[in-house]
Design a protein around this nucleic acid. Structure first.
Lengths: 222, 222
DNA sequence: GTCTATACAAGGATAGAC
DNA sequence: GTCTATCCTTGTATAGAC
């Protein structure tokens, strides 16, 4: 029983430490890039000796991979099940609001992913690429069905998805530029509503739809 | 005269070498990040001994700064003079086409700038920030004038500028993701036209305008 | 102006004591 | 499971020969 209690306690420390390390590592990788972030920096900020980081994660690469994997894993929730019978205005509006919310809540995650893609996605596993392609293909097919039913304007569904991705993520990835131009220290809840409404209104009208106005900001809409 | 001829010849070598170094450095910084790109790599690919890079550029930081400065300097051409009397549809359409063209022609430049901003813009000089803010304010003022004249829908001009930036730059910065999803090895001229037309059509309609159709792809429109 | 050789620091990783 | 001390590589930068 002592053994069990012991391993439980140690297990708890393990979980807490790895959690702390991953959190700090994400921040440091975003701020300084993969090579710019040193294990020493991460260890210091996590309040652990450098060797412990290597104990929990075999190498810097593995640590980075783990950070990246967790980020990607947390994204499979958006736009889960949509069908040709759904209302495109509602679905697209919800998609835009959700993406802006994610950009606001997890800007670091968005940034790290952006860095990875800009560098040519050297750490992205093949299955992720395939999953992403399938995800886009599926959603594009539904959008195309809406177009064929005359529910919305004839536009390329894939480029529409890119447009929603880029215009929403911009507020996370280019945060420092956006804030500098808007002369702000940081985003406020109000900005998030303004941004969501702006993007939803322009994009929906742009594809021949009308914003529903059904979405209540800052609540669960998923 | 010999002296003059000599310094001329040497000057020519200097220009050619610095040019080559800057070109290679830009590529390496984009691929590997600031810390990931070593002076050795850059020297090798430029076909020069490492010490020569230090001879032309005092330090790695200075080299990076120079690369960044040149990129920013090459961007002041877009949307130069616009006035409240101009036709918003024409101006915005030209803006979108121009930005897509830049993303296609200089993807590395776009990527390096994106990396810099994502990292919090630690190397961006204050005057650049100020210039950017002024640029946006000026253009926003003109757009607001168009709105006040009833020429286009009531939308926030600053967010509209962000939207055009983000959706166009996406094709450069997220190139690897876009190409993977589109199942392509690289962009072709045709893609550029498709993208420009898509973005112009959705954004213009989104702000209550009609695409003019005046722009002839792949020609000078500036 | 160019390049070889080298100084010096930083970083990733591990051995081994606790 | 934790941490100190250390190894070894790599990287920036420069001195000094040509």
């Amino acid at each position: 029983m002592t053994g069990k209690k012991n391993s439980y306690k140690l297990g708890k420390i393990r979980v807490e430490n790895t959690e702390k390390i991953l959190e700090v590592a994400e921040k440091k990788f975003v701020e300084n890039g993969f090579h710019g972030a040193s294990m020493q920096m991460i260890a210091n900020e996590a309040g652990l000796p450098k060797a412990n980081i290597h104990y929990y994660f075999k190498s810097k690469e593995k640590l980075y991979d783990e950070v990246l994997t967790r980020i990607i894993g947390s994204w499979n929730s958006v736009l889960k099940d949509i069908t040709p019978d759904d209302d495109p205005a509602e679905v697209l509006e919800r998609f835009i609001y959700k993406k802006v919310e994610l950009a606001y809540k997890f800007p670091q995650a968005s940034k790290l992913f952006a860095l990875e893609i800009i560098h040519g996605a050297p750490h992205l596993k093949d299955h992720v690429r395939i999953d992403m392609r399938r995800w886009v293909r599926e959603k594009a097919k539904v959008i195309q069905a809406w177009i064929d039913q005359g529910k919305m304007a004839k536009v390329d569904p894939v480029h529409l998805i890119f447009m929603i991705w880029s215009s929403t993520q911009h507020y996370a990835d280019f945060e420092s530029q956006v804030l500098a131009i808007m002369n702000r220290a940081e985003y406020e809840e109000e900005d998030i509503n303004t941004i969501s409404e702006f993007l939803a209104s322009v994009i929906l009208r742009g594809v021949g739809l009308k914003p529903t106005g059904k979405i209540i900001p800052n609540t669960r809409n998923d």
